[in-house]
Design a protein around this nucleic acid. Structure first.
Length: 577
RNA sequence: CGGGGCGUAGCGCAGCCUGGCAUAGCGCGCCUGGUUUGGGACCAGGAGGUCGUGGGUUCAAAUCCCACCGCCCCGACCA
């Protein structure tokens, strides 16, 4: 491609709306342009990257026996009602206004189950892996960070259909393997975490995460072993609260003005680990008290999972007063005026000699014994893991990092097949629901995550696998130096014939402009042809990432470029693994 | 949805507080001509704007007021 004919609108300045580095660079390098909030056009350069990434995905999906489909984005509302997701997904679903009964699909479990119901009749038809790469529509309340969270985005979604749970395990493992290869080949440094299945339902799910400050997920990652988990499910080996040999008699004492555990600790010289913080939540309309140690933080996702609640929110100040008779800071598990479920964090299991609110403003109890003085309905891990806490596997300190979710794999089970009646006959002639898994990759997120991890102050640093072109041919002063023009034209021709994708900067621009654009676009190799080098019978090959430069005769360029691209491709895999 | 901010040329911004000085400026980019050319050149000339939209106040509105729309940020939410 000749740059002079190409539509590559680079920006010298960073657009003010862009916060994340990847967003800034995708705009500046002319990969994308915004069209509306959370909606982006891919320009030719960006679309080339998309296609390269999709090619990798197709190759790996095909390698595990996946068959590519193309499902419509327009879906009948009916099938979504049958699985209940019109309600559970709520506002996230885009509904069509001027045509009753259609919506824009945010994912395709329903459609897959629908077609499976039509044609999968026997265990002999199974297993199947169906996939597609297609736009998805989600009415995100707040799109963010460019293509990292958009209202329309491209997803590779695949669905496994199996006759047995063992079969599901195999399909799931195949996907885990394919995903590892995909992200590796795309040059991502990633880790895999156990995750919450959320409203998708199902038994097991794992997320493929790329560590980045632009990430919207928080993960606990072990600094030594390979333990990693989404904060929604992460554990740590923190000390439990030891039970004292004797429980002193329960004692109510005045604590005027105390609003927090810190107040208690400082004004009454109490050890933090003996303070029990009580929180009041409303789960599906009913009050639940949560007891945590000291300044431990509640993890609402964990609590919701433990309770199996559809909705969960903190109680309002009025509710707090109505249910406990006190305001925040003075509530506790002892002497609750309203009977309610009490959930205590595992860390407080059977503890005694605790201090907690007395459900009366300005008063607390001390010497609380959870076995003697109140009824704990449930002990569960509901706390948020903090930076530096010991790993549950190896006790090394955990790091808490932000991460971008680039892939998510779910063992769904029979939720969707049962709802839509996708049944088959097993070898005993029994009718059984198809066992499903679903597996997603955010294609744009791969690109954004890659840029987050592979850039410097000058621009992007692509690897050959997903670079929009392989080589940036920079010809300097070609308008007035015929030797340069001829050398560059010839090299462009030869490289093209060798199957190497070249972006040929044949513009009549100054050297500085060309170099800066080349570094911004970040193609893996730059081939610099200028009067200086051509005069001495050489051309310069520059590796973008390392800035390493090689000077070779024009006849050796094709071979040199091929060798360096191969090296860089391998290096890309090493970076990733 | 709650809180905050912004909307002036393709991009980045100033002007608004305290209305008139105004034919709405500046830098970058763009067009023409010339000089330049190994890290974002220089000179000269030029094009480009319903100041987000609608309403109101006023002799007079980019500027003050109201409503709406759009965008960004923090939070809530996020299969």
């Amino acid at each position: 491609m000749r740059y002079s004919r190409a539509f590559i609108p680079t920006l010298r300045e960073t657009p003010s709306e862009a916060q994340a580095i990847s967003h800034q660079l995708m705009l500046r390098a002319g990969l994308i342009r915004p069209l509306a909030a959370g909606v982006y056009s891919f320009l030719p350069l960006g679309w080339r990257v998309m296609q390269k990434v999709m090619r990798v995905i197709r190759e790996e999906m095909d390698a595990i026996g996946g068959q590519e489909f193309h499902f419509p984005a327009l879906n009948p509302v009916e099938i979504w009602q049958q699985t209940g997701r019109v309600d559970t997904m709520g506002d996230v679903l885009f509904h069509i206004k001027n045509r009753e009964g259609l919506l824009l699909a945010p994912t395709h479990e329903e459609v897959v189950a629908f077609h499976a119901r039509q044609h999968i009749k026997s265990y002999k038809d199974l297993p199947q892996i169906w996939y597609q790469i297609q736009p998805k529509f989600r009415n995100e309340p707040r799109p963010r960070f460019g293509v990292l969270r958009g209202r329309q985005f491209t997803m590779k979604d695949s669905y496994s259909l199996d006759a047995t749970w063992e079969g599901l395990d195999i399909s799931y493992e195949k996907h885990a393997h394919a995903y590892r290869r995909i992200f590796q080949r795309c040059g991502l440094r990633f880790f895999v975490v156990g995750a919450s299945s959320g409203a998708m339902g199902g038994s097991l799910s794992q997320e493929f995460m790329v560590e980045s400050p632009a990430g919207e997920d928080t993960c606990a990652v072990c600094s030594q072993c390979d333990y990693a988990a989404n904060a929604e499910v992460a554990r740590s080996a923190v000390d439990p609260t030891p039970r004292m040999p004797d429980s002193q008699p329960l004692e109510r004492f005045p604590t005027p003005g105390v609003r927090s555990i810190d107040d208690l600790v400082h004004r009454f010289a109490l050890p933090e680990e003996r303070c029990a913080k009580a929180l009041l939540y409303i789960a599906d309309g009913r009050p639940v008290m949560v007891l945590l140690r000291g300044n431990d933080e509640l993890n609402e996702v964990k609590l919701q999972a433990v309770l199996g609640a559809i909705s969960l929110r903190p109680a309002s100040p009025e509710e707090l007063r109505n249910y406990t008779g006190a305001s925040a800071g003075s509530i506790g598990p002892v002497d609750l005026p309203t009977p309610m479920l009490i959930v205590a964090d595992e860390r407080l299991r059977d503890a005694n000699e605790l201090v907690s609110g007395a459900n009366s403003d300005g008063y607390h109890y001390r010497h609380i014994d959870l076995q003697r003085d109140c009824r704990i309905d449930l002990y569960a891990d509901v706390r948020t893991v903090q930076m530096g806490e010991p790993c549950p596997e190896c006790k090394a300190p955990l790091r808490i990092v932000r991460a971008i979710e680039v892939g998510h794999i779910f063992k769904l089970g029979t939720k969707y097949s049962e709802a839509l009646g996708a049944m088959f006959l097993d070898e005993h002639g029994r009718e059984c629901p198809i066992i499903m898994g679903s597996y997603g990759i955010g294609v744009e997120r791969i690109i954004a995550a890659f840029i987050e991890q592979n850039h410097d102050e000058r621009g992007i640093c692509w690897i050959p696998t997903i670079a929009p072109f392989h080589v940036h041919l920079v010809a300097l002063a070609l308008e007035r130096d015929e030797a340069v023009r001829q050398t560059a034209d010839t090299l462009y021709e030869q490289l093209g014939q060798a199957g190497i994708e070249v972006l040929y900067d044949d513009r009549n621009e100054s050297a500085g402009v060309k170099f800066n654009d080349a570094d911004l676009l970040g193609l893996p190799l730059q081939l610099i042809v200028g009067p200086r080098t051509v005069g001495s019978g050489l051309v310069e090959v520059k590796e973008r990432r390392s800035d390493r430069r090689h000077y070779v005769a024009p006849e050796q360029v094709v071979e040199t470029v091929q060798r360096l691209l191969a090296q860089l491709s391998e290096a890309g895999c090493e970076i990733a693994s």
